[in-house]
Design a protein around this nucleic acid. Sequence first.
DNA 1: ATCCTTCGTGTAATCGATTCCACGTAGCCA
DNA 2: TGGCTACGTGGAATCGATTACACGAAGGAT
Lengths: 342, 342
Amino acid sequence: MASIKDVAAAAGVSVATVSRVLNSHPSVSPDARTRVLAAVESLGYRPNAVARSLRTAQTRTLGLVISDVLNPYFGELARSVEDEARGLGYSVIIGNADERPELQDHHVRTLLDRRIDGLLVSPTDGASPLMLDAARAGTPMVFVDRWIPGVDVPVVRSDGRGAVRDLVAHLHGLGHRRLAIIAGPAATTTGSERVDAFRGALASYEIELPDAYIGQGDFQADSGRRVTEAFLDLPEPPQAVFAADNLMALGALDAIRARGLRVPDDIAVAAFDDIPWFVHTDPPITAIAQPTKDLGRAAVRALVDRIEGRVPESVTLPAHLVVRRSCGEPPQTPTSMERSNG
Amino acid sequence: MASIKDVAAAAGVSVATVSRVLNSHPSVSPDARTRVLAAVESLGYRPNAVARSLRTAQTRTLGLVISDVLNPYFGELARSVEDEARGLGYSVIIGNADERPELQDHHVRTLLDRRIDGLLVSPTDGASPLMLDAARAGTPMVFVDRWIPGVDVPVVRSDGRGAVRDLVAHLHGLGHRRLAIIAGPAATTTGSERVDAFRGALASYEIELPDAYIGQGDFQADSGRRVTEAFLDLPEPPQAVFAADNLMALGALDAIRARGLRVPDDIAVAAFDDIPWFVHTDPPITAIAQPTKDLGRAAVRALVDRIEGRVPESVTLPAHLVVRRSCGEPPQTPTSMERSNG
DNA sequence: ATCCTTCGTGTAATCGATTCCACGTAGCCA
DNA sequence: TGGCTACGTGGAATCGATTACACGAAGGAT
C-alpha cells in the first residue's frame, strides 16, 4: 500500500508538500498541487488513518456502548448516532454490553485503548470504576438513555413521567385497578425511574403498588416471561402489566399466551419503548414512545461539542403514549394512532 | 495519559524492556518484570493501540459492512460476528450501508483507511469497483449472506432452496395455486436467488410464476407495502405472498390490513428470515429461518483464517422452514414449532 | 541597490509503540 | 584462566503521517 513517501517521490516533492496538499494548507503552489494530486490519483493513495491519528492525537471516532443491539430501541439509537456522527465527520464504533457489566467494561477499555475521541454510554450498571476514572480523567463522555447519578457527565435522555401518567390514566379509564410493573434492573436509572414514575402516577388515583406487583426483570424477554408467570400465579393477579422495555413485554406476551389467556380480555399489557413491530403483534401493543432519533442526534451533538471545546448540554426530551389495543377497547381513531412511531 | 516512556522512567528501565514485559517476551529478568508491572499499575498505563498498530501493521480489528442494522436478521448477524471476533481477540467496526451503494462504499473506504485487518461484507450492490479493487489488492475479505459473483472471495451463506421447496409444498398442500413473490433488488444475490428458488419449486408443481406475480422490492418495509398493494389490485390477485425478507413481509402485512383483508383467510403470507417477533404477529408468520449465529461465526472464522495465513473456506449452511399460521390451518404441533427460532 | 516581506519548499522532530542489533556480564567447560 | 554461550538490557531505527523551523527566491518599498 502506497505511503506518503511514495506520493512525494512520484510527484517530485517532499512529504511535507504532499501533506500540505492533502490538508489544503494555503501555501502550496498550483504547480506542486497538481503534481501531487496526479500522483495521489495514479497510485490510488489513501492516507493511513492510524499514522495520522498517532500524530494528531485524534481519531475522529466516537465510541458507543449500548446495552443490547438486539433490542430494536438500541438499534434505532445506534443508527441515528451513526448518521449524525457521519454528518459531522466522525466514525462510530459500537460496543454491545449485553446488559453485562464486565462486557461493558471490556468495550470501554478497548475503546479507550483505541483512543476514540469521545464516548457515548448507556450504562448497564451503576458503578463501573473504569468509567468513573475515564470521566474523571477528562475523557469526553455523554450518557444516553441511562446514566450514572453523581458523575459530572452530560445526559441525553427522555422523560417518560408524563407519558406514564397518561398510560395510567388510560388504564384507569378502562377500569383496571390492579396494576403491575415488570421493572428493569435497579442498578440502571431507567430501571428504577420507570417504577417511580409508575408508582407516582398510581398515587394520584390512590392506587397502591404492592411489592408483589413489582417484578424484577433484566430488560430481556426471558425475564418478562418469568415475572409475568409469577404475576399470574398470585391469588389476585394484576389486571394490567406494564413492561419497562419492549423485550420484556414480548416475554409477558409469551407467558400470557402459554396459559391460554387473552390480551387484553384477560389481562392488559403495555410497554415502555415503542417499536415498529408493536403495530403487528396480536394485539397491537400500547406503548410509550421515545424520540429515539432525536436522542441519538442530540447525544452526538453534545459529545462533539465537548470534544471540540464547546460546552455540552444535557438534554431531556418528552416521551409520549401511543394507544393501541393491548389494554382494552380500541381508541377512537385507531388508524391515525397506529402509525405514530413511523 | 501515560506513555511507555513514563513507565520506563518510573521503573528505571528502557522502553524496550517495558515493551518486552508487556508482550511477554521471555528474556526479561524477574526483577525488571516486577518493577515494570508495578509502574504500569501505579500509573494506570494502557498501551496506545494506535501507536502499536502503526508499528506492527495490524489493528486486530475487523470491519463488518451490512445492509441494514434495523433489520433484526442483520442485527443478530452483527451480534454473532462480534461475539466470535471478541473470542478470537478482534474488535469489530460495523458499517451500516442502509441498502445504499454509495454509503456502502463510504464505509468500505473508511474501514480501509483505518487499516482494519479484514473485511466482512454483505454487499448491497453487485459491482462496487472499490470493493473489487480491495479484493484484488489482497485485503482479506469474506462475503456473508450476499456475495458478488466472479470475485475470488470466500462466501459464507445459507442455502434456502430446500426450505423454499418445503414452503411451496406447504402452500400447495393448503390449496394455494396462485403464488407471488416480493423480490429483493436484482443486484443482490439474495434478491435474485430467492426468486429462482421459488420459481424452481413452483415448476415441480407445474405452476408458472408470471411477471405480474414478481414484485420488485428493496428489502425495506415500504417496498413490501407497495408491491403488495399492486398484487391486490390485480384482476386475479395471488392467494399467497412470499416476501424475500422480514421487513417486506411486515410491509405486506400493513398493506393487507389496510384493505381490511385477513391473513391467512383472504391471503397467505410467508417470509424469508425468521425473527423472534414473527411468533407474536397477528397471525404468527411462517418463515424460512437461517442459522444466523452459525453464519456469523463461520464468517469470522473464515476471515481470521485468511488474515492469519491459513486457507479460508466458503461455507454454505441449510435454512429451514418454520411453519406457523400465516399460510393457513395451524400445524399439528403448534407449540413445539413456534419457538424454533430461539 | 539594499532591505524587508512574503511565499513556497524541504529538513527534521515528533507521536508511542516494536524490534533488530550490539554490548556487557555471568556461568560453564576445558 | 581463557574462551564460549546465553541472557538481560539499552540504543536507535522504524511505522506514516503532521508541523515547527529554516532557508532561498522573488517582489515591493525606500
